[in-house]
Design a protein around this nucleic acid. Structure first.
Length: 493
RNA sequence: GCGCCCGUAGCUCAGCUGGUAGAGCACUCGGCUUUUAACCGAUUGGUCGUGCGUUCGAGUCGCACCGGGCGCACCA
C-alpha cells in the first residue's frame, strides 16, 4: 500500500516544509507557468551541442521532480515528453532561493528558468537562474531504484503507477493511437459514429448477464447495455448506411486477465455488404492498427510472434474441428450423434441443448486455443447465432465469422439477419430459454423487430473487443494493463 | 463461484523447528562537493492485512474473514 494515512511521518515532514514556504511568502500551489520548451524539444534542438559547452539561449521548463543529486545541485525534471536535467548552482542562483531548494521534495512540480548547457558527463541541462514551485507533493513516491511493482498497489493507485512506470503511460498512448486509427479508418470510408443508449429496458444483442440499475423518477429498473448491436441496426433501418460506435459495454461476469466488468467495444454496421466483404475490411483495419501502434504487422505477444499479414486464414468451423479432433461434424446429423462424439472427446456439454451448441462446445474446447496466428473461423451453427443471416448454401449454418489470434477471440462478424419474421422466431426462441432460466439468453426486443419490419437492406456487421486488440498489439498480459482504472474491490476498514 | 499462492517500514525485501522486529533505499540532521552522490556519519520510522484461538509466549501454528495474483468456471 502507498502512503495514505494522515499521520505518516513522511507526510508530516512535507507539510512542515509547505508551511515554511508559506511563511516565506512562497505560494506552493500557483496558477500557471509560461513554458517555452518541453524536455524532448530541448533534447532534439541541442542534440549536437558538445559536452562541457553552454549557450546563451534562455528557456523555461516545467515538470515533476523525480530525482535529485548533490543536495539539489542536479535535478531530474520530467514532463510528458521526457527528462531534462536542472543544474542548480550557487553561482547562478541568489542566496535566498538557493536555501529554499531544501524545502523541495521529490515529487514536487517545478518550473525553472535558465540557459542551456551540456555537462562534462554529457547530460543536457538547464543552468537554472530562478525557479518556482508549481505544486507541492505531500506523499512520498516509491523508491526509484526498487521501483513500484506490487500489482495490487499499482492498480489501486494507478496515478503512482503512471509516474513510476513509463511503460504504463506508453501503453495508454498506444491505446489512444489504436482507437484514433480505427476511427480514422472508418470515418474515411464514410462511416458515421453515432452514440446509442447505455441505459436500456432490456439488455440484448449478446449472451451475457447485465448490470441492473434504477431510475428514480420513472421508478424503473434499467439495464446497462451488453452490446450496441440492436440500436446500431435500428440506425441502418433509419437510413444510415454505414454506422459504428466505440463505446463502453458492461457485462456482469467474472473478472480475469481477459475480462473487466466494463470494457470497450467497436461495433460497425455497413449496408449492402456480406461477411466475405467484411472479413476483407476487418483484416485491413486490424493490420493498419497494428502497424500504427506496433510499427509492423508482426507483433510479439508474450514471447510469441503474431503475424498480422494479409490475408488471414479462413477455415470453416467444422473443418477446424476436423483438423484437430478428426471428428466430421457434418456426418453427424442429429443431436444425439454429435453429443456422443463430443462426450468421447471429453468435451463438457453443460448448457448445450442443441446440435449447434455441441459443435460450438467442441470447437471452443479443442480448436480455439490452437489458433495462434490470425485466423477467421467461418460458418457457425445457427442455434448460437440468433441475429445472423442463414448461410446461402449450407443448411443449419449462418454466415458468421470470428477472428482468433493467440487462441483468443478478437472479433465477431456476420451477414446480418434482415428477415423480420425469421428474426422474430429466433428471438422468441431465445426468450423462451430465458424464461426457462437461462440468464444469458436474449430477451425479446419487440421494438427492434418492429424496426426490422419496416425493411432493412442486406448488411454486414462486426464487433471488436478494443481492450483485447490493444492487449495483443501492446504485449499486455492482463486486460487491466490496458484499462486506466480497472475494476477493484474496495478495501473496507 | 472453485483451487493454489501471496499480504512484514514510504518502496523493495529478509525474518529458521514459536522466544519481545531486521536490511537496503527513501526521510530528518550533520559532513563533503562549482559537474553527478545510487557518497560518508548519525538518527528516525512497524496495531507484521483483520479477528478469534492454541501457548508461559504468535510475524511464525490453527480457524474464520478482508484484499490481491495465477489457473479453472462464466464470458468478450
Amino acid at each position: 500500500m502507498t502512503a495514505e494515512s494522515e499521520g505518516t511521518r513522511l507526510r508530516q515532514e512535507r507539510i512542515r516544509k509547505l508551511e515554511t514556504m508559506k511563511e516565506q511568502g512562497i505560494n506552493p500551489f500557483p496558477y500557471s507557468f509560461a513554458r517555452t520548451h518541453k524536455a524532448e524539444d530541448l533534447q532534439t534542438k541541442y542534440k549536437d551541442l558538445p559536452n562541457d559547452t553552454e549557450t546563451e539561449d534562455e528557456v523555461r521548463v516545467c515538470g515533476r521532480v523525480l530525482n535529485e543529486r548533490n543536495t539539489w545541485m542536479f535535478v531530474d525534471l520530467y514532463d510528458d515528453s521526457g527528462k531534462i536535467q536542472l543544474f542548480c548552482h550557487k553561482q547562478n542562483i541568489a542566496e535566498e532561493p538557493l536555501k529554499q531548494l531544501r524545502l523541495l521534495d521529490k515529487g514536487d512540480f517545478l518550473g525553472a528558468t535558465g540557459t542551456i548547457r551540456r555537462t562534462k558527463q554529457g547530460e543536457l541541462s538547464v543552468k537554472v537562474t530562478s525557479y518556482q514551485i508549481l505544486g507541492k507533493s505531500l506523499l512520498p513516491l516509491p523508491d526509484s531504484w526498487d521501483g513500484f511493482t506490487d500489482v495490487e498497489a499499482r492498480y489501486r493507485h494507478r496515478y503512482v503507477d503512471m509516474i513510476m512506470n513509463p511503460a504504463v503511460r506508453e501503453t495508454f498512448k498506444k491505446r489512444s493511437i489504436a482507437i484514433r486509427t480505427i476511427r480514422d479508418f472508418l470515418d474515411s470510408r464514410g462511416c458515421l459514429e453515432i452514440e446509442t443508449p447505455v441505459l436500456q429496458v432490456e439488455a440484448g444483442g449478446a449472451d451475457a448477464r447485465p448490470f441492473i440499475t434504477h431510475h428514480n423518477t420513472l421508478d424503473l429498473d434499467l439495464y446497462l447495455r451488453i452490446a450496441t448491436e440492436l440500436h446500431l441496426k435500428r440506425l441502418i433501418v433509419g437510413g444510415f448506411e454505414r454506422v459504428y460506435e466505440i463505446g463502453r459495454i458492461f457485462r456482469n461476469e467474472g473478472i480475469s486477465t481477459r475480462h473487466n466488468p466494463e470494457f470497450t467495444m467497436l461495433e460497425m454496421y455497413w449496408a449492402y455488404g456480406d461477411y466475405n466483404e467484411l472479413m476483407d475490411l476487418a483484416e485491413e483495419m486490424i493490420v493498419e492498427t497494428a502497424a500504427k501502434v506496433a510499427g509492423s504487422a508482426k507483433v510479439t505477444y508474450q514471447g510469441v510472434e503474431i503475424d498480422f499479414q494479409r490475408p488471414f486464414k479462413r477455415i470453416r468451423m467444422v473443418d477446424a474441428i476436423k483438423a484437430v479432433t478428426g471428428v466430421d461434424c457434418e456426418a453427424l446429423k442429429t443431436f444425439d450423434e454429435i453429443k456422443k462424439a463430443a462426450q468421447e472427446l471429453g468435451v463438457d456439454l453443460k448448457g448445450c441443448d442443441s446440435r449447434g451448441h455441441v459443435i460450438n462446445a467442441i470447437f471452443e474446447d479443442k480448436a480455439e486455443s490452437t489458433l495462434i496466428q490470425p485466423t477467421f473461423i467461418i460458418d457457425y451453427p445457427v442455434e448460437i447465432s440468433p441475429l445472423t443471416k442463414p448461410h446461402r448454401t449450407n443448411e443449419g449454418e449462418v454466415e458468421r465469422f470470428e477472428l482468433f489470434a493467440y487462441g483468443r477471440e478478437l472479433a465477431n462478424g456476420y451477414s446480418e439477419l434482415t428477415d423480420p419474421l425469421d428474426q422474430r422466431r429466433r428471438l422468441e426462441d431465445q426468450a423462451a430459454k430465458k424464461a426457462a432460466g437461462n440468464e444469458e439468453a436474449m430477451p425479446l426486443d419487440l421494438d427492434f423487430i418492429n424496426a426490422m419490419e419496416y425493411g432493412m437492406p442486406p448488411t454486414m456487421g462486426i464487433g471488436i473487443g478494443i481492450d483485447r486488440l490493444v492487449m495483443l498489439i501492446t504485449d499486455s498480459a492482463s486486460i487491466r494493463d490496458v484499462i486506466a482504472f480497472p475494476t477493484m474491490k474496495p478495501i473496507i476498514k
